[in-house]
Amino acid sequence: MKFVFGLVLGIGAGLAVAYVLNNRDEEEGALGSLQVSVKGAIDSAKAAIAQREKELWTEFHERVPAPDQTTIA
């Protein structure tokens, strides 16, 4: 049973690689569209991180009072 599963998995992986390599010649092949999708996901994640960081800093400054500058020497 393990052999059959491994065989099917190997055939599937081989077909996927062949498909990606076959479409490299096209302007927007599978590899190019995957690259665009990953870049878009990374850009979205970076924007979400920056927004969340801004929200957390705002919340922090609301909860923690600023130090009194006159007592620091």
Score class of each variant (00 low, 15 high):
34 L>V: 01
26 E>T: 01
22 N>Q: 11
43 D>H: 05
34 L>Q: 07
48 A>M: 12
2 K>F: 04
72 I>L: 15
5 F>Y: 08
18 A>Q: 11
4 V>W: 13
48 A>P: 08
37 S>Y: 07
2 K>S: 12
64 V>T: 10
40 G>M: 00
35 Q>L: 11
33 S>Y: 01
47 A>D: 10
48 A>G: 09
55 E>L: 08
70 T>L: 13
23 N>C: 00
4 V>Y: 09
13 A>C: 09
29 G>C: 02
10 G>K: 14
18 A>L: 13
44 S>E: 04
2 K>V: 02
18 A>N: 11
6 G>T: 02
19 Y>R: 10
56 L>W: 07
18 A>W: 13
27 E>K: 07
13 A>E: 09
54 K>P: 03
57 W>P: 00
20 V>W: 01
49 I>G: 04
22 N>T: 09
64 V>K: 06
54 K>D: 10
13 A>Q: 06
48 A>R: 06
21 L>G: 11
21 L>Y: 05
58 T>M: 07
38 V>H: 11
58 T>C: 05
65 P>R: 12
70 T>S: 15
47 A>R: 09
19 Y>T: 10
3 F>V: 02
69 Q>S: 10
19 Y>I: 08
51 Q>W: 03
6 G>D: 14
42 I>H: 10
7 L>Y: 14
9 L>V: 10
42 I>S: 13
72 I>W: 08
40 G>E: 10
24 R>Q: 01
28 E>C: 05
16 A>V: 06
61 H>S: 09
70 T>M: 10
73 A>S: 12
27 E>Y: 03
14 G>V: 02
11 I>S: 12
39 K>T: 13
29 G>V: 00
35 Q>G: 08
31 L>T: 07
18 A>F: 14
60 F>D: 03
62 E>N: 12
32 G>I: 01
39 K>P: 02
54 K>Q: 14
33 S>D: 04
22 N>V: 08
26 E>N: 02
13 A>S: 12
72 I>H: 13
45 A>M: 11
15 L>R: 06
19 Y>C: 06
56 L>C: 09
